[in-house]
Design a binder for these strands. Structure first.
Lengths: 227, 227
DNA sequence: TGAATGAATTATGCATTCATTATTCCTGTA
DNA sequence: TACAGGAATAATGAATGCATAATTCATTCA
C-alpha cells in the first residue's frame, strides 16, 4: 500500500518514515533481522541516522502488516511464523493466486505471456543445475508477472503485503527432488493454461500449486523448529 | 490486524496509538469524517486529549490500511473510494468470501448454523418492513458468523481490513426492490448450502453474491458522484 | 479588475525531552 | 548457595519544541 506511482517527471520526495518502512521490511525479509528477534530501536536509529519518531512510525506500520509484533512497553520483535499461521495464510494466498490467474487471463498480452515463457526457461535451467535460490527468484518473478497482468492494483498490494509475511519461509524452504520436479511440472501446466487464456484452469492449477508449496514449507519449518 | 485476543484475566493496557487507530477508524467508517475530507490533526488531538505523536502513528497505520491517504507535507485525507477501486476490491472480497464459505463448511457447528438461521429470520423481517439499515447490519452479522466459523484468524483479519475499506459504501448503498429481493434469495441459498455443509456450493454462491453486491454499490456510487 | 509576487500564518516532519515501565544487577537473608 | 527484594539502568510511550514546507492573505502592477 501507499504505493507512490507518480509520473516520472514529478519530483520524488518521500518522507523518512515511508523510506524507513521499506528499509526495515527489506531488513526483515532478507533475514538480517531473524524471526523472533528483538527489533533494536536505538541501534537502528543510529544505523539509519534518524530519530526515534519516524522509526517508531515505521514500526507501527510494519506491525499493522503483521511483519513485526508490538507488545506494549516491551518493544517490537520480528513476528515468528508459526505452523498455525502458515496453515492459515496459505489458503488465503491460494485464493488470491487463483483469482489473479483468472483475471490475468482476461488481460494478459502475447508479449507478457512470451516474457513469462522466457522466465520459465531460465527457471528450468536453474532447476536442472540444482540452484535453489535463483530458482526461487525466477519462480517469484513469474508469479509477479501474472499478478501484474491482472491490472488490479488493489489485488497486487494485498497479495504483496500477504506475501511479505511469509516471504522468508518461501525463500529458504528446502525441497525434495520429487517435490521440486512436481513444482516444475505444475509450472508447465501454468504456462499451458496461460497460452490458452484458460482462466478457470489456471485458477485451479495455481490454487493446487500453492497448496503443495504449503506442505513443502511446512515440512521445512517443522524441521527447523522441531520442538 | 494487531488483534489483541488476550486471555480474560490479563490486565488490559493498550497503548494510545492503538486505541486511537480504532477510534479514528470508527470515526471514518461511521462517516463522521467523510471521504475526501482532510483529517484535522490538531483538532483530533484536542478532541482526544493526546499529543500529535500517537495520533500521527495511528494515521500511519490507517494509511497502510488504505483508509486514509498521506501526501508528504500535505497531511492526511480520508481515502475517497473510486469506482475503479471498488471494481478492484470486490473481486478480492469475493475470492475471500468464497474461501471463507469453503472453510467454514468444514468446521461450523450445528449450533452456529442455527444461530445464522436466527439472524437470517430477523434479517428477512427487516427486508419485509423495508428497513435498509437494520437489514445491512444483520447481513453483515451473517457474513461475520461465516467468517468466524472458518477458525482462521489470518483470513478473518485480512477480510476485515479489506472490508473496512469499503464498509461505508456497503452500508449506505441503496437497493432497488428487485435487487434486494434477489439478495434475500441468495441468502436463502447460502443457508441451504450451509445446512448441507456443501463448501463448493457455498463458495460459488458467496462469490456471485458479492459480484451482485458490486453492481449495486457501483450504481449507487455513480449516482452519488455523477460528474 | 485580475493575475502575480511576497509576507504572514499555519501545518507538517522530525528531533528532543520527559515520565513511566521493564529489566538488570546487586545486596542481604534464609 | 539460592532466592527475594530493591536500587540502578535501560527501554518505551508520549509530549513538547523546532525547522521546513505549504497555504493563505495582502499587496502590487498590468
Amino acid at each position: 500500500m501507499n504505493v507512490n506511482l507518480l509520473t516520472s517527471d514529478s519530483i520524488q520526495r518521500r518522507s523518512l518514515h515511508d523510506e524507513l518502512t521499506d528499509r526495515l521490511r527489506a531488513l526483515i525479509t532478507r533475514g538480517d533481522l531473524a524471526p523472533g528477534e528483538k527489533v533494536p530501536e536505538k541501534e537502528l536509529c543510529l544505523q539509519f541516522g534518524v530519530s526515534r519518531t519516524p522509526l517508531r512510525e515505521a514500526l507501527k506500520v510494519l506491525a499493522s502488516e503483521g511483519i513485526i509484533t508490538l507488545r506494549p512497553n516491551r518493544g517490537a520483535t520480528v513476528t515468528a511464523l508459526t505452523v498455525k499461521e502458515l496453515e492459515e495464510v496459505f489458503p488465503v494466498m491460494g485464493a488470491l493466486e487463483a483469482l489473479s490467474g483468472e483475471i490475468a487471463c482476461q488481460h494478459i498480452t502475447d508479449r507478457e505471456v512470451h516474457a513469462i515463457h522466457k522466465l520459465h526457461e531460465t527457471m528450468v535451467g536453474h532447476w536442472k543445475k540444482g540452484e535453489l535460490q535463483p530458482y526461487f527468484r525466477l519462480n517469484q518473478k513469474i508469479h509477479e508477472a501474472i499478478l501484474e497482468a491482472t491490472r488490479n492494483d488493489s489485488l497486487k498490494s494485498i497479495y504483496r503485503s500477504l506475501s511479505g509475511r511469509i516471504l522468508s519461509a518461501r525463500y529458504i524452504a528446502n525441497m525434495s527432488p520429487e517435490r521440486w520436479a512436481k513444482a516444475v511440472e505444475e509450472h508447465e501446466a501454468i504456462l499451458k493454461a496461460l497460452d490458452q487464456r484458460d482462466g478457470a484452469k489456471l485458477s485451479k492449477i495455481l490454487k493446487a500449486h500453492l497448496a503443495n508449496k504449503l506442505s513443502t514449507v511446512k515440512d521445512w519449518l517443522t524441521a527447523q523448529l522441531p520442538r
